[in-house]
Amino acid sequence: MNINLKDALKYLLLAAVLIYPLFSFANEYFLHVMVLIMVYMVLAMGLNIVPGFCGLLDLGYVGFYGIGAYTAGLLTIHFGLSFWVIVPLAALNGAIWGILLGAPTLRLTGDYFAIVTFGFSELVVLFLTNEIWLTRGPLGLPGIDPVIIDFSWFSTLINPEWDWYWEFIGPQPYFYLGLFMVALVYVIMGRMEDSRLGRAWFAIREDSIAASSCGINLLTYKVIGFAISAAIGAVAGAFLARWTMFLSPDMFKFWESFLILCMVVLGGLGNFKGSLVGAAILIALGEVLRIILPALNLPTETRFLAYGLIMVLMMRFRPMGFFPSIATQSQKNPILIKLKKELGSS
């Protein structure tokens, strides 16, 4: 094993981030921002499938985020379901809406798709605002239970004294749960990218006519991509619901979609690792601007000026994002490493 300095630093940093919340000096606000970054990391990775892998602009990603959040919130409030049951249900609901929206519209050119997704997410917000009987409308949905880990049914069987029941209070447990969620989505993204599925998406992005001549059913694979992306968005929404314990339609306006898209563009279209960096940078930037802008007597919404500018400049000067070098997962694929060696030696 030779670990060079760069790797060593990387792991040291990772370890520091991992144990930071355990220290007593850990700052609540700072931890809160870190959890927020993790939510957006998941969203940015999930969104990247559509514009990055398939080459289609999705302007309504926040719609699925909202669907996941309200699915989780309502299921918690009305049925008291456990978080661990809700996450797959929210993902499923996101995927179903993805299929319902994608199947009829993904046959068309990308421009139409972009505008349809936009309209869809606006309709989601209108629905959440106006269907008061279900969502309480603009008042929002308060009183959602936090995440609970409950093994008391098991522990009391062994020893009546034991009560294995933990309710998530404060940012620390959410920090680790968020980290777990990011890691899980990261692994799924990496494995999808380096597979028959991922190659089919890339083929569609590069040249759809050539892709269909390779036997790829364009509609099927675009719908699969859109549905998986929607499901990931919904998972992030479910996490948000149980973390903030309050939802309102305002949290799912178009600006959110734009912000997530900006993270994807900054990190590089089709580069899901870059999306992690994009999410961290833009959330951090947002927090800084939230302090600076009022000092300049400007409304905090004007931070989107910076996001808009970032997107325009990135497309002009760095269309592959800032980190094109970390783009391909397949460099780690053992089959390809072996092949490279064989080709090199012959």
């Binding site: 000026l305 808009g308 497309m315």
Partner: peptide, 26 residues
Amino acid sequence: LRQSPRLAALITAIGMSIFLQNLAMI
């Protein structure tokens, strides 16, 4: 961006829209 993929121009368009809107707000 005339020679770039259409996605790039589309993203630029949406970026410009947000930029101008916030410029007006400022």
